[in-house]
Design a protein around this nucleic acid. Structure first.
Lengths: 334, 334
DNA sequence: CATTAAGATTTAACCGTTCACACTATAATA
DNA sequence: TATTATAGTGTGAACGGTTAAATCTTAATG
């Protein structure tokens, strides 16, 4: 592989000049530039990115930590990150944390050790203080998490509004007896979604009775179980709003097994617009979580703050994304 | 950040000695080693991985190219790769090719430019010759693709056996009139699955009539359409075998809309054991494609060949993975 | 005791860039 | 004309490690 040295020799200029035409960061006469470019072409020169990193103290890589590599949400987020990053000729180093504090910390250490220029984190288990500490060491943006002290670098979904949208849709379709299957109540996103749900009910002068609230754990199976609880509780219900699509899927399964015809006998709405939502039967009406957009935005913040991009196509920074209703066939009007 | 220089000074030894205790690749007396380790500890020294890379001509990173970041298959493969790689303290640089030749090539260039030590590729669009060329430049392992010239570095699923397993299961459950919804026939995996299918039928002395074969494109919608073709073609069928889970999902949807009660009136089997397969209703019986295992194995090959690992926990190399039947509820016995 | 071999450590070149600074040539200003 | 500014280029020291070769110790051998 040709080095900058050989290029400089062939072009008859100094190393510095070659470096200048590469980086385009200082004046070089057109004549010289042409000579250098021709030499590069002729030698098939590619700069050694490692040497560049060492000398410039910049690796052009951003570290990403997600909980899992599979799963619709993370895939979309990463998709958004990778697409945007590669346009800028940067790259992504991936690690997983498995929602475990020790693993998340070790992954962060790993990424810092790799000299990433910045971090994009999707973490549940590590404390706010720890994250604040990390962000003092290295530019960090958080997805799906809000830490007040570094709120400019936090990107999240307006979960409350999403919950509101879902409930409102149900209400507009005439439903009044709506059961709710929530995620774990200690998770803020789960909690917020439910708050939005109640808010929509309130607008219709319904205040949610505790007997309509059921807590799951965001996994399919808990949706399944919760449905049975609902069904056996004796309450009247014509619709179920779920904290996420997985639980919605479980609830649909259970409902069908209990003899309900969907969506005729029962309407169900999910949350997230997971990959598989349109594969369910009936296709699941749900709330889109803008995962791709959030990944893209996290990247844009870094491109702007760390890499000083001034590109026009980097839109205005949005920290809170607005969820959208995705109407499909799982909600019936009555 | 402390450098090796400071460590050497504090420990009262030379740079080389510090390097040796780090890399553990030459004799160092216990006394010296202890001194050095203590100095490192005291300074909180972390080697600069970039400098290491430049000096050693090894980046400890492997480049991965997949078609898409979302989607169950890739997620699992990447999961297998990342897990195995991080155990070895290496990292993964990710790019996407979107099944487009130009993009795949540019991604490969990108990864080579990043000085990855090796490549793991999941590509459809680039030619065999190109891949052979690439593998001369940099150690490369291919997932889901077989190129004879570099077969030791190819990992794939025994698609034929998978197709065989699926059909056999249907046959064992008493089905004899089995329609087949295939993927694009120019894709080898699609073709192989169908060959396996026919083989199983042959064992039951059934030779597949062309009117039972329907070609889709691996997307859900084509499964949907194919079902209607099947249903309108006038053939008798009690089961449908599908080239993948997406098409199975589409077929299920169409069947239900046409009034079939599943699985009572019609059995359906998929292929891949995609994430969402168990979310369908009825839960989809399918063939597991060992995605995670393939990712892991690809990594093991690299760990062994490139990084010279001799770990016992790197199992024997397997180039062709054996698919497994995953029984759920979408197949009825008659 | 001199010789040799093996073991431990140091020296210094090297990896391929970037970048602060020095320098030269030319144009603009007083 | 002397002075100053500016554009264009070269010099050489980092950056933080690795590693081959040289050197120094120590122990074993005849």
């Amino acid at each position: 592989m040709a080095t900058i040295y050989e290029v400089s020799k062939l072009a008859g200029v100094s190393l510095a000049t070659v470096s200048r035409v590469m980086n385009n960061n200082a004046k070089v006469s057109d004549k010289t530039r042409t000579k250098v470019l021709e030499a590069m072409e002729q030698l098939g020169y590619r700069p050694n990115s490692i040497a560049q990193s060492l000398a410039s103290n910049r690796t052009n890589s951003v570290g990403v930590l997600v909980s899992e590599l599979h799963g619709g949400f993370f895939g979309l987020v990463m998709n958004g990150i990778e697409t945007e990053l590669r346009l800028a000729d940067k790259h992504i180093i991936i690690t997983t944390g498995h929602s475990d504090e020790a693993q998340e910390k070790s992954a962060i250490d790993f990424l810092i050790g790799r000299k990433c220029d910045a971090l994009i984190l999707l973490v549940d288990s590590v404390s706010d203080e720890y994250l604040i500490q990390v962000s003092k060491t290295i530019p960090t943006v958080l997805i799906n998490r809000k830490v007040d002290e570094i709120s400019d670098n936090c990107i999240s979904l307006d979960n409350q509004y999403g919950g509101y949208l879902a409930a409102k849709h149900l209400l507009e379709q005439g439903h009044r007896d709506i059961a709710y299957i929530a995620g774990p109540d200690w998770k803020v996103d789960s909690y917020d979604r439910f708050v939005g749900h109640k808010k929509a009910l309130a607008e219709y002068n319904i205040d949610l009775n505790d007997s309509y609230y059921f807590e799951g754990d965001f996994n399919e199976n808990s949706g399944y179980k919760c449905f049975h609880k609902i069904n056996n509780s004796g309450i009247n219900f014509t619709a179920i709003a779920c904290g996420n699509d997985e639980m919605a899927s479980g609830a649909m399964k259970a409902a069908r097994e209990s003899g309900y015809i969907l969506p005729k006998d029962l309407s169900i709405i999910g949350f997230d617009n997971n990959m598989f939502a349109s594969y369910l039967y009936p296709e699941l009406t749900t709330i889109d979580n803008s995962a791709y957009q959030m990944g893209k935005m996290a990247t844009d913040i870094i491109l702007k703050d760390v890499y000083k991009h001034k590109d026009l196509n980097i839109a205005k920074i949005v920290n809170i994304f607005e969820p959208k209703l995705v109407k499909r066939n799982s909600v019936n009007s009555i």
